[in-house]
Nucleic acid binder design. Structure first.
Lengths: 342, 342
DNA sequence: TTGAAAGCGCTACCAA
DNA sequence: TTGGTAGCGCTTTCAA
């Protein structure tokens, strides 16, 4: 059997309370006693029983992280940033993949509630009806990452997607494009929408009009990017083809590039393309994809930090302060938008 | 405060033991009493306290899953297969990413030990000195997935990598290649080694000799694939260039394709390429990459199933049966090995 | 600075 | 079929 705190106490010739005190540094213990206890722990190979500890303290020391897709490098980097921060404090993490489905998000949240996590980081699948209210209802501290759900006052760590959309649009404008289109993301996703707003603002700031015919919608997948380009070409006369395209994420951007190739449309010569996220694939495709990148790892770490601060505030019965941190993004120039090419 | 089982008992006018019995269906309860209890649970919104339950039962109902890289689609699919099986039984999972580093694997294992998981699925980083012995030492049931560590008798769920290597080699042979090279994976990784053995056997079964000059080594990354092709070209006279290449995983295969393009070497005309894993990228690259795929999702599910059976056997104090299940693989023909092209 | 003991919420044994 | 109750291993008051 695993040794308990009683075994340690006996071996060290002290009471269990004393052992607890040296383990948790929760009260001063004489140096000599401390040494005896430490040695006993060592010799018995004692490890505190997680369940008993959690039962007493009403805290699991586990934190949940919910993302739409763990195999998406954007999210796996975010996860790594958050995990590194949690592990620093000896806290464990539970990673959940919603696969972009609200029902799966709901199930994941139920699991986290059941596991009685001390807090959760969530990138919600949709802007409404996601698992966040359930967590709030159960009084579990939550921080939103990457996407900010509407209708809840809560702390959130975001990228400046609107600014990113603007940067992308201005880049194409500076490059000389005059018919710039946009491939939008899924309807309920705030990041996708904000990037679009940035595009609109980018055009308007130069006195240009948004043209409905140059706007298509996808769902963030590779295939939807291919379809979007097809639609845009089909919908316009040759004289009105877009010469530049801002695409709401890299995966769709890669789809656009592949479709352009199939259609013998030269990128960037006849069509310049810019994406968002800076995933690995963007460097591997030919031509390489110009993109806008956010400091994903830092965003994860910051979100974890804020969550820990919230938990700490709760413990002290202090007031929760809702913060909103926005990271700025930067342009990564590659071949797909090269000037004067083609 | 959260209601406890005592609150439920009071509300229903029965004893806590009875409540426990209806919740866990651990003993027959009269239909009428059951109804009263269920209603009390409902009206109070009672949920069993995980910590108390775990403390009493000495079981966490949590299972660990350790993989080298969650953003690698091969592993994320494996994870999904395993998770779906665990969730089916209402069990929770903890996913750990070792980033291919043995030290991280060790830290992950420590976390799982601390969390007192009921069992673990592990794709070990190296064939030796991985976290598996630590888990075995702590008496935590383990099943190896994808890679089988040497020196431990344990149940394992694997793909037939040797057969896969053979299929790949024969495919190139049938296609007419006569100088077939191989790009090996990292030294300690069993899957990579087995694929190489399959290649050797494939050649020898046709009475062909393995040529040292046609063999390079990479580390499973994109860049190492590029480097490998460079080396192979540099090491041989033009008359002895390989006309076909079996590459130990798709990511390196994509690297080979990109490098070939840079060198103006036509794929598949001058060089046919076959990879392993069937990752998404292989379908997106130009030319698309021929590959060997394994039933990854099923492998994850099977591994979870076997782990659960081991846990069950332990509970019944039955003997653990070590199984070894090998899934066969299949060729996915794409452009990079097309016949008569170029 | 240390010890005794209550109790966190649950399950399972023993009685009835 | 049900109830009483001990105890899982820990932390934390209260007293010494």
């Amino acid at each position: 059997m695993e040794p308990t705190i009683l075994d340690v106490a006996e071996q060290a010739g002290v009471s269990p309370s004393t052992v607890s005190r040296v383990i948790n540094e929760t009260a001063p213990v004489a140096e000599a006693t401390k040494k005896k206890v430490t040695e006993a722990i060592e010799s018995l190979g004692y490890r505190t029983n997680k369940f008993a500890h959690a039962l007493r303290k009403q805290a699991s020391n586990v934190f949940g992280i919910i993302v739409p897709d763990i195999s998406n490098p954007f999210f796996s980097t975010l996860i790594r940033g958050a995990e590194d921060r949690f592990h620093e404090d000896g806290l464990s993490t539970m990673i959940c993949d919603t696969d972009g489905q609200p029902e799966k998000e709901a199930r994941n949240v139920e699991m986290l509630v059941k596991e009685r996590v001390d807090g959760a980081l969530v990138t919600s699948t949709e802007s409404e009806s996601n698992g966040i209210p359930r967590l709030i209802d159960k009084d579990i501290p939550v921080v939103a990452v990457d996407r900010s759900p509407t209708g809840y006052e809560m702390t959130a760590v975001l990228a400046d997607n609107e600014g990113a959309g603007m940067i992308a649009t201005e880049h194409l404008l500076n490059r000389g494009c005059r018919m710039i289109g946009f491939v939008r993301g899924p309807a309920g996703v705030s990041t996708a929408h904000e990037r679009f707003i940035g595009y609109v603002n980018g055009l308007e700031s130069r006195g240009l009009e948004v043209q409905e015919g140059l706007i298509a919608r996808g769902d963030f997948t590779f295939n939807s990017g291919k379809r979007a380009l097809e639609e845009l070409i089909a919908a316009n006369n040759e004289s009105e083809f877009p010469d530049g395209l801002v695409v709401a994420n890299d995966l769709m951007g890669v789809g656009v590039i592949r479709k352009a190739e199939e259609m013998n449309l030269h990128v960037p010569g006849e069509l310049a393309v810019v994406g968002f996220d800076d995933i690995l694939l963007s460097k591997l495709i030919n031509p390489t994809l110009t993109t806008i990148s956010a400091p994903t790892y830092e965003m994860g770490g910051t979100a974890a930090q804020l969550l820990l601060e919230t938990v700490e505030a709760d413990r002290k019965r202090a007031e929760r302060k809702h913060k909103r941190i926005v990271f700025s993004t930067k342009l990564v120039e590659r071949e797909s938008s090269q000037f004067g090419a083609g």
